[in-house]
């Protein structure tokens, strides 16, 4: 395991997209410490901001200290494991296609943006646009699992195409906006306009039925067998599943879009 300890107290964001097992694999200490990072708009070396120890023998990286200002950790990684003991900055695991990231603190915006595979688990909170498409892009998350044990901001899963997002506490407005497919499960309160313009996909609200858009239409109360498969998956992450007994109310929408999406929430 490579151990990185963040040393800087600068408030200028550090862009460190080189912190992935893919970049570190087969490199010596000196090669790793010379990997490029950007301190604001200034090109620097990784070793200027982190103390580095350990070996890359098990394809994993451990990051210590508060990295709230460090962006792009684990972005586009394809393999291995990253564990962060503190908080992390924006774009954590953006575009990841394999491997796993565990954050024991909290994250900010764009976690897992446009991710294609792998698993990101955050034990604390996360910001806006989790698993979303970047502005101008048509497709967000395309696969993998994104598990947030705390709360999230707005536009979670915006334009996601595939994969699973689970949020243990509250989620902001516009969850699943423009969703193309995939599944979002939330265990806390939900903001306004959930599923706006979603085409397909599933939003599951475990504890409350928010005020739905008028373009979602009630279909039935029933017992969807597939949900248990997702709940069993979430048990692997000790996700809070306190209220999973059927029946569930199914609402179809968004009817201003394709209308093949669904919102499942507890039946009255």
């Amino acid at each position: 395991m490579i151990r990185l300890s963040y040393l800087s107290s600068s408030k200028i964001p550090l862009e460190a997209e080189c912190i992935t097992p893919d970049f570190f694999l087969g490199k010596t200490y000196s090669e790793i410490s010379k990997l490029p990072v950007f301190d604001g708009n200034r090109k620097c070396e990784l070793g200027q901001f982190f103390s580095i120890s350990g070996t890359m023998d098990d394809d994993s990286i451990l990051i210590e200290n508060d990295c709230s200002n460090v962006k792009l950790i684990g972005s586009r990684m394809t393999r291995g494991k990253i564990e962060v003991l503190g908080n992390v900055g924006m774009h954590l695991g953006a575009g990841i296609s394999g491997g796993s990231i565990l954050v024991r603190g909290s994250a900010t915006d764009w976690v897992g943006a446009e991710m294609k595979g792998g698993t990101i688990e955050i034990l604390g909170d996360a910001g806006h646009l989790i698993g979303a498409a970047y502005r101008g892009a048509s497709v967000g998350m395309r696969g993998g699992n994104l598990i947030i044990h705390g709360s999230c901001g707005n536009e979670v899963g915006s334009h996601m195409r595939r994969g699973l997002i689970a949020i243990g506490k509250n989620v902001g407005d516009f969850v699943g906006m423009g969703m193309i497919a995939g599944t979002i499960i939330t265990a806390g309160s939900v903001g306004i306009r959930a599923g706006a313009e979603m085409k397909r996909g599933t939003l599951v609200f475990l504890t409350e039925r928010p005020a739905l858009l008028p373009t979602f239409r009630f279909s039935c109360d029933y017992d969807p067998a597939f949900l248990t498969i997702y709940f069993n998956k979430l048990k692997q992450f000790n996700f809070p599943l306190l209220n999973t007994i059927s029946p569930w109310s199914r609402y179809c929408g968004d009817l201003i879009s394709l209308g093949r999406g669904e919102i499942l929430c507890k039946a009255n």
């Binding site: 595939r162 599944t183 029933y222 969807p224 067998a225 997702y230």
Partner: peptide, 22 residues
Amino acid sequence: QTSKLLDGKRYWRIPVMDGEFV
């Protein structure tokens, strides 16, 4: 019909008169 893809396994959900066949 719709499908769910989880951990590399695809599950088809086919609407039927008592809900859906997975």
